[in-house]
Design a binder for these strands. Structure first.
Lengths: 129, 129
DNA sequence: TGAACGTTTGCTCATACGTTGCATCGTACA
DNA sequence: TGTACGATGCAACGTATGAGCAAACGTTCA
């Protein structure tokens, strides 16, 4: 998961013991930089997918909805474990669920994740060659 | 970053103290699951972007190429720090560089990252509303 | 109403892990 | 040859993280 960096990442471009080479480029980069809140959210999304178990969960949910115990079987861990990971995915708005009797059926929140994953997989396979 | 999970994530669907509800769905999910190697690579990609500093670097490189010291200024850290992070990004094939005299100029390896980021940002902004 | 089931959640614990800084080395330029 | 830039090795620190247990919760069914 993400770790707090001690450095205060101030948004403005303050001096930093190193000379700037390309003022224009640096200026552009800084002005195009998304707001801290957005960056945080983006980090959190990637963080959520940077774990084998959670990746499995999300990949499994890419094609269908599944209940917690089936996800547990797919991932090879206890349902408690799955539930913990699902909460994290829920908190980051990557998955949703509906109740079906005593069962909770999970699915992806929207297509963003699906697309991101397919690009990542494409990248991985392309580089593997 | 990713941490090794003690569990042995065996690919096949072995028994796991929980009953399977939807055999067909579980079977499909397992058969569609990418190979372990690919999953690892995908985890690594997301892991690389799950850090504020590296995200900044990649976002900055989204629009232009930049040398190490300019990146240091943008991120507000030492060039040594940037260099460390750049090595990680290089190892995961997310960035490349060319030499320009005594300077190393970095850029994104391909469009995959750019697209992934824009989707993640879109997702984040959409959910923020 | 009670019991079984499925799921969630709170805790705790040990530890691996990532980030950062410093110092050094290699290379390029002038 | 001396100065800039960047890469890299190494060490240290704090701490985020995943596992596992047990208990709480909500739902269904007898």
């Amino acid at each position: 998961m993400q770790r707090m960096s001690k450095r205060s990442h101030i948004t403005g471009g303050e001096a930093c013991e190193v000379e700037i080479v390309d003022d224009i480029a640096v200026g552009q980069a800084l002005s195009e930089m998304p707001a801290p809140g957005v960056r945080k959210a983006v980090v959190d999304i990637h963080d959520a997918l940077a774990d084998e178990t959670r990746l499995r969960i999300v990949l499994a949910l890419s094609g269908r909805e599944l209940c917690v115990c089936d996800l547990a079987n797919i991932c090879g861990i206890t349902s408690s474990g799955v539930s913990h990971q699902l909460r994290l995915l829920r908190d980051r708005d990557l998955v949703t669920y509906r109740r079906d009797g005593k069962r909770a059926v999970y699915s992806l929140s929207d297509d963003h994740v699906r697309v991101m994953l397919s690009i990542a997989i494409e990248h991985a396979e392309e580089r593997a060659r």
